[in-house]
Simulated assay, not measured.
Amino acid sequence: MRKIGITGQNGFIGRHLYNTLGLFPEEFERIDFNKDFFENNEQLDKFVAECDVIVHLAAMNRHESEQFIYDTNIALAQKLVDSLKRTNSKAHVLMSSSTQEERDNLYGKSKKEGREVIVQWANENGGKVTGLIIPNVFGAFGKPFYNSFIATFCYQLTHNETPSLANDGEVKLIYVQELVHLIISEIRSEKSNAELFIEPTATKKVSEVLALLEEYKSKYFENGEIPALNNSFEHNLFNTYRSYIDYKTHYPVKFTQHTDPRGAFVEVIRLGIGGQCSFSTTVPGITRGNHFHTRKIERFAVIRGRALIQLRKIDTNEVLDFYLDGTEPAYVDMPIWYTHNIKNIGDEDLYTIFWINEAYNAEDADTYFVEV
């Protein structure tokens, strides 16, 4: 079993990598990192000595002073190298850098020089190093106004703000989970590669991305329709957009009921995509679910009985409770990386419709069981 530590563990990419490694408990052991370790040689050395693999993601991306960014990133790389030397580590170090290495700015310069410092350590001390030259990364839970323009647009479009288009250039993009799986593949390979260029999985104009996000706001956020997702980029962008919705205030969404002497009719979901729709009854006191998905789009619709739907982002302790009653049919959509369940809290059978965007495949279920 490989012991893996991630500097920048609680950052955007670091948190996705940390959580994904947790899906392979028989292959990887995660060694926890805290940013305060960089200010304490004893704690940093203890961390480094425990690791077979270190993924160095800790860095500063934005600050009003470019010189401060440069000094900070160089210092972080040097502190890590000093600890590697003090502990006589032979770890495989994977260093995140940026395609901005090619540009004439202090951020790109700091990433290139930081990578070179770690490469030099590996060459002189028998370590392994992989320098990851990474394009623009987007994905769920990125920090708006910091990690990417996509994070900023998604936040604005889900919080009654209007994005502005300052520069409509083409941007090379990779989804954070695609990047994470590439990093894990490099860990498994155990090979050194001082300059590994990560290929983008999409190249888009900023205006193209904004147009898609505005469509998601109109169709999904405002009207509950799952839009057409024509390729993996659009699927990943849609899941990214959904992650910025304030679930506490947005759900549950009540359906529009059409009643006549025959009874009631409720439209559960409009689809630009297909998938699988299921129906269940649940006896009082029973709980279904307690699992999460990393890519699937799913809707729970209660049409009869009383239910408690609970969600918890898997690396937090906060549980979101939603109470639904079939007298006012409503739905809650399940965000990626949130474990979720549904419990019958009434005195009669609970009737629920479940929709998910892909048919169940036992060999690739994307379903991980964790108690809410």
Results as ranks from 00 to 15, higher is better:
residue 192 S to L: 12
residue 136 N to Y: 07
residue 231 N to C: 13
residue 204 K to I: 08
residue 137 V to G: 08
residue 137 V to I: 12
residue 204 K to P: 01
residue 207 S to P: 02
residue 224 G to Y: 03
residue 128 K to L: 15
residue 192 S to G: 14
residue 228 A to N: 14
residue 178 E to I: 11
residue 219 K to P: 01
residue 195 E to S: 13
residue 216 Y to V: 01
residue 189 S to C: 08
residue 160 N to V: 07
residue 180 V to K: 02
residue 185 S to F: 04
residue 131 G to M: 02
residue 210 L to G: 04
residue 135 P to C: 08
residue 179 L to T: 03
residue 168 D to F: 07
residue 181 H to W: 11
residue 214 E to N: 13
residue 140 A to G: 09
residue 214 E to T: 14
residue 173 L to G: 01
residue 153 F to P: 05
residue 208 E to W: 03
residue 129 V to P: 06
residue 122 A to N: 02
residue 173 L to I: 02
residue 159 H to Y: 10
residue 218 S to H: 09
residue 228 A to F: 13
residue 207 S to R: 02
residue 184 I to G: 01
residue 121 W to N: 12
residue 236 N to C: 11
residue 139 G to Y: 04
residue 233 F to Y: 10
residue 169 G to T: 13
residue 188 R to S: 03
residue 229 L to G: 06
residue 133 I to E: 08
residue 219 K to S: 14
residue 174 I to Y: 02
residue 125 N to C: 11
residue 185 S to I: 02
residue 186 E to Y: 08
residue 131 G to V: 03
residue 168 D to I: 05
residue 180 V to A: 00
residue 124 E to H: 07
residue 221 F to P: 06
residue 132 L to W: 05
residue 162 T to I: 14
residue 138 F to V: 01
residue 142 G to A: 15
residue 178 E to G: 06
residue 129 V to N: 05
residue 156 Q to V: 08
residue 163 P to N: 08
residue 139 G to H: 00
residue 149 F to G: 02
residue 180 V to I: 09
residue 131 G to Q: 05
residue 130 T to D: 03
residue 121 W to L: 06
residue 177 Q to A: 08
residue 229 L to Y: 00
residue 205 K to F: 05
residue 130 T to S: 15
residue 235 H to E: 14
residue 156 Q to R: 13
residue 124 E to I: 00
residue 169 G to L: 12
residue 155 Y to M: 10
residue 185 S to V: 01
residue 125 N to K: 13
residue 179 L to P: 02
residue 144 P to K: 12
residue 133 I to C: 09
residue 162 T to V: 15
residue 189 S to Y: 07
residue 192 S to E: 14
residue 189 S to A: 15
residue 226 I to D: 04
residue 223 N to H: 15
residue 134 I to V: 15
residue 207 S to Y: 00
residue 205 K to S: 03
residue 120 Q to D: 15
residue 205 K to H: 12
residue 157 L to T: 03
residue 165 L to H: 06
residue 164 S to C: 10
residue 178 E to S: 14
residue 234 E to L: 09
residue 147 N to P: 01
residue 121 W to C: 09
residue 125 N to D: 09
residue 120 Q to F: 03
residue 132 L to T: 12
residue 210 L to P: 02
residue 172 K to T: 11
residue 205 K to W: 00
residue 142 G to Q: 11
residue 141 F to I: 03
residue 175 Y to S: 04
residue 184 I to T: 01
residue 194 A to I: 07
residue 206 V to D: 05
residue 158 T to S: 15
residue 123 N to G: 12
residue 176 V to D: 00
residue 200 P to I: 12
residue 122 A to I: 08
residue 198 I to W: 00
residue 165 L to I: 12
residue 183 I to C: 09
residue 226 I to L: 10
residue 124 E to L: 11
residue 137 V to Y: 05
residue 135 P to F: 07
residue 186 E to D: 08
residue 154 C to W: 00
residue 138 F to R: 00
residue 179 L to A: 05
residue 140 A to E: 15
residue 180 V to P: 03
residue 131 G to E: 03
residue 166 A to S: 14
residue 146 Y to N: 09
residue 222 E to K: 13
residue 226 I to Q: 07
residue 199 E to G: 10
residue 136 N to K: 10
residue 181 H to M: 14
residue 213 L to T: 06
